[in-house]
Structures are given as C-alpha cells and as structure tokens.
Simulated scan of single mutants.
Amino acid sequence: MRLKEIPRVKTISKEDFIENYLKPQKPVVIEQLTSDWEAYDKWSLQYMAEVAGDKTVPLYDDRPVDYKDGFNEPHARMKMAEYVNLLQKEPTNYRIFLYNLMKEVPQLQKDFQWPDIGLRLVKQLPMLFFGGENSRVFMHFDIDYSNILHFHFHGKKRCVILPPDQSKYLYKIPHALISREDIDFDHPDYDKWPALKHAEGYVADLKHGEMLYMPEGYWHYMKYLTPGFSMSLRAFPRKFSNLAKAAYNVLVMRHYDNLMRRWKGQEWIDHKNEQAVVKTHEKLGIKPV
C-alpha cells in the first residue's frame, strides 16, 4: 500500500480546522490539543488501575469472526487492575473495545474537555479503548460514518487510515464493515492480495496526548506499539449521503447479517469471505490465480 504521513500541527484554530481539514475531509494530527487537560498529566495505565481497578472489563482478541458470536460479545472478562498488570507484564492480544468506563468511574469525566473545534460532538460519554504491545485492531470503518477525534494516552499507537474511495482495494466483506481478517496489514502479501498494491492512504504514530482527526467513513487499522489506551469523541456525518449510509448500516445491514448468521451459520461467514475476494478482483479486472 502507498501510505504517506498524516499532516501534523501543534495547535490549530477552529477556523483553520474547519477550512483545511473538516470541509475537505482530510486527516490531521493535533499534537497539543490536550496539553491543558488534567488527563494529560494524570492518565496512564497505572492511574486507570488505581481509579477503576475493581471494575470488571470486557476483553476482545484477534480471533476471526464466528457465526456464533453475538454483536460485540466479549471473548473474556477481567478486573481492570489484573488487565493493566497483564499489559505491563507481557504482550497480549486482549483489548478493551468501546467500553464506557467513564460511566463506571464518573471522576474520569472531569479530566478531559470537549474541544471547541467546529464539530458538533455527540455529548454521550466517550468510549475508551485499551491494548497491549503489538495488539491490533482489524481494518474497518465505523457503522455510523462519524467524524472522529481519536486521542491517545500512555505510549505509542500506529494508525493506518484510508479514505472511503479506497474500499475497492481493501477486500471489503459484503454486509459488513471490515476487510478480510486474514490480511496482515503490517506486511501485506501482494501475491495473495494484489488489489492492496493500489490502495493509497495515510499513517501516523500517535504519542501520549496527541489527537488524530479521522473524517467520515475512513477505514482504519490500529496497532499498539506499546501498551496504552485511547479515547474517541464523535460527531455525526455532515454529508447527507454518509448519513443515509449510516442509517442503512444500523437499521438494515446489521440486522440482515445477524439473520443470515442464524440461518446459514458458518457457511454465511465463509461465503462472505469468498465474495470479498471475488468481487474485489472482478471490479479491478484481476484474474484468479
């Protein structure tokens, strides 16, 4: 894949963010947006263990989708203190995904500020994401096509993102929001996945306190280079076409896929994986090997 570094600024005005990034739907890393937050000084894995150590948290690993899996059903559960200890002790594939820790631990809500950056952010409590060294979040895009402000804390995280128009190269699974899960996006096998050679996107390594703006419908693949955690703030899509796609995903696509899983079982999952390759290669005129 052809990836270029995401542009970086230390700070930015609301007007410049709207004109240069929001309107043209271009990503940017803002390095010092959180510098006046209490979270900038306080938020670390150890701090999370101290304030939320007794909370039981849902954990997910990188196993392939199984037809028996429920929607967002965790693969394991653990006390937060135990989980942080695991993260600091050794690499692990276990991640916390879309967890509303701020509802469980209200004092965390005082540690961050809602940025006045030109987005009408959804004032729902933000979700947190945790991961161990080398753990990965598969290539996907979000069901609601939101504009996303993605803040990282504690350590370093690599973010590979691609615009929606690159979907045709990413072996998108039909009736889903993901690409083929057996693609190694760190070291793509272009003999097996030749369409990936044409994909163009962006990459950034986020450090503590840095924020990545991801525009509507962008694909993203995340890798925790060190143990750490992130927080996302969201704003509904501004484009009507993306709002319509989001409504279809939530009201139709998700329910249709769940129905087919119950009816066809693993056969449905296997069929979708096969069609991801067939349809991608057909569109691009790539002959099967």
Rank of each mutant, 00 (worst) to 15 (best):
I143W: 02
D144Q: 15
L149Y: 14
L149E: 11
H150E: 13
F151C: 07
F151H: 04
H152K: 12
K156G: 08
K157P: 05
R158I: 09
C159M: 12
V160C: 04
V160H: 09
V160F: 05
L162G: 01
P163G: 11
P164Q: 13
D165R: 04
Q166A: 09
S167C: 04
K168L: 12
L170M: 12
Y171P: 05
K172S: 12
P174M: 05
H175E: 09
S179Q: 07
S179F: 03
S179K: 01
R180F: 11
E181L: 04
D184H: 09
F185S: 00
P188F: 07
D189Q: 08
D191L: 09
K192G: 08
A195W: 12
A195I: 06
L196S: 01
L196G: 00
H198T: 02
H198E: 13
Y202R: 01
Y202T: 00
A204M: 05
K207S: 08
H208Q: 04
E210K: 06
L212V: 01
L212M: 10
L212S: 04
Y213T: 02
P215F: 09
E216K: 07
G217I: 06
K223V: 14
K223A: 11
Y224Q: 15
P227V: 14
S230F: 00
S230N: 11
S230W: 00
M231H: 06
S232G: 15
R234C: 12
F236A: 14
P237G: 14
R238T: 04
R238Q: 13
R238I: 14
K239R: 14
F240M: 14
S241D: 15
L243C: 06
L243D: 06
Y248H: 10
Y248L: 03
Y248R: 00
N249Y: 06
L251A: 05
V252M: 15
M253R: 13
R254L: 03
H255G: 06
